[in-house]
């Protein structure tokens, strides 16, 4: 079975939605498998005063995704996703979800590695 990929989106529609440039405070997530949208999931953590990143990360785990595409991942989300074994892919802002997915398919997106600074 092909891997599930989540993309942060600022509109809860389909692959034509703009990619949301932020992970923890994204409006929602599209979960894609074999090019088909499996789920459109609202991000319930978006308005949390704290813990949006860890909340969104736990949602990724529930949705069973192996990769997430977004514009930026915060420090807590990064460490949570790393621990969960979920790969973070960085896409430039201004793309649609479909465009971001295509670039990921061509291996053009940078993988966000957890930077250990000390």
């Amino acid at each position: 079975m092909a891997e599930r990929i989540a993309i942060t989106v600022s509109e809860l529609t389909d692959l034509s939605a703009p990619m949301d440039p932020r992970f923890g405070r994204a409006a929602g997530f599209l979960v894609v498998q074999d090019g088909e949208v499996l789920t459109v999931s609202k991000n319930s953590a978006v308005l949390a005063s704290h813990g949006a990143g860890t909340g969104a990360a736990s949602l990724m785990q529930e949705l069973g995704v192996g990769k997430v595409i977004s514009g930026a991942f915060g420090p807590k989300a990064s460490s949570a996703l790393t621990e969960m074994g979920i790969t973070m892919l960085l896409a430039p802002a201004g793309l649609t979800a479909a465009e971001a997915l295509e670039r990921a398919g061509r291996g053009e997106l940078q993988v966000q590695a957890l930077r250990v600074i000390r």
Partner: peptide, 23 residues
Amino acid sequence: CQKACAFHAILALKDRVMAFPEL
């Protein structure tokens, strides 16, 4: 534990937890 936490301060992994003291 993860479900009980209102602050998303603890995440359950397969065989361990990940706690975020600052949350």
